[in-house]
């Protein structure tokens, strides 16, 4: 076990720090007033509907675009696996590794070759002839071979079958277990992230809605079910839905005094959905402290 994986203990230094980030495409803002930090060694999930600004945030983090406002700071080197895992189709797998070696100062070619051999991906095969899962593995291997401090993955699991999703996640998690690596990965399927991520960032319509430790967030929220009219005083309502005379609410804070409420801890998906349905709500460290 590596020593850098403490969950509790003092707050870890940030691996990624975003301050007042604003990105504009022509006249529309893709990202506005976005400030967050992801602590070292965490696996952060970046979730939000399509067009929320996830890719924009990631591109800003890896320097693919220059923000109009604010800035992004990465502690150390970042590696990026873009959406659809772009690779050179006419290259063989081995040539992709040469490409990585020639375009990077840090490069662990032996580890990369071992990984691909372990996955049974033939080095002589053309990239264009790989299956979706193999392609994803090659892209992830290239990114990991740079020995990055921050690994940014844009929709790494999209278009993969369940087995390939599992395999890709295993590869990434094994690397996290091995050394101090921070991961930022985006998905619009929350259930993909349930067991793998310990940090949550929710973007919605170009604005940051949630940023914090997943356990603390889940501990700080409750799902209340009760009759319409029951008092939820003392809590902060994130969102509510009514069916007939029954109300279901996602709230922050301690359970309310009204005994008619049934309270339970939300699941990750419930928490995310609750926020996405109420774009005006936010749970940010800067506003009220995570898990108030």
């Amino acid at each position: 076990m590596s020593p850098g994986l403490e969950v509790t203990g003092p707050r870890r230094a940030p691996a990624l720090e975003v301050t007042g980030l604003g990105v504009r495409y022509r006249r529309t803002w893709a990202l506005r007033d976005c400030s967050l930090s992801v602590p070292k060694g965490s696996v952060a999930a970046l979730v939000g509907p399509n067009g929320a600004g996830k890719t924009t945030l990631m591109h800003a983090a890896v320097g693919l675009l220059r923000p109009a406002l604010g800035g992004v700071r990465v502690a150390g080197e970042a590696a990026f696996v873009a959406q659809d895992k772009p690779l050179y189709e006419s290259f063989t797998v081995a040539e992709m590794l040469v490409f990585g070696r020639r375009t990077n100062t840090r490069w662990d070619g032996a580890a990369a070759a071992d990984r691909l051999a372990g996955l049974g991906i033939p080095p002589g095969r053309k990239v264009g002839a790989l299956s979706g899962g193999q392609r994803a593995q090659v892209a992830v291997t290239l990114a990991l071979a740079c020995r990055p401090d921050l690994l940014v993955l844009d929709e790494p699991l999209a278009n993969l079958d369940p087995l390939a999703r599992h395999d890709v996640m295993r590869s990434i998690m094994a690397e996290v277990a091995e050394r101090e690596l921070t991961v930022l990965l985006s998905s619009h399927v929350v259930s993909d992230l349930e067991e793998t991520c310990d940090w949550l960032v929710v973007l919605n319509g170009g604005r940051l809605q949630v940023s914090g430790d997943i356990e603390e967030l889940l501990d700080g929220h409750l799902v209340l079910t009760g009759p319409d009219g029951a008092s939820a005083a003392g809590t902060r309502v994130v969102g509510a839905s009514r069916t007939g005379r029954q109300v279901t609410m996602l709230v922050r804070g301690a359970p309310p005094l009204d005994p008619r409420w049934q309270a339970r801890r939300p699941g990750l998906e419930e928490l995310v959905m609750g926020y996405l349905r109420s774009p005006e709500s936010a749970a940010l460290p800067g506003l009220a402290g995570v898990g108030a």
Partner: peptide
């Protein structure tokens, strides 16, 4: 080890 568990289950090593 954490790595062995993670490699078989694809979960966060911190877990």
């Amino acid at each position: 080890t954490a790595r062995q568990v993670v490699e078989s289950l694809a979960i966060n090593p911190n877990t």
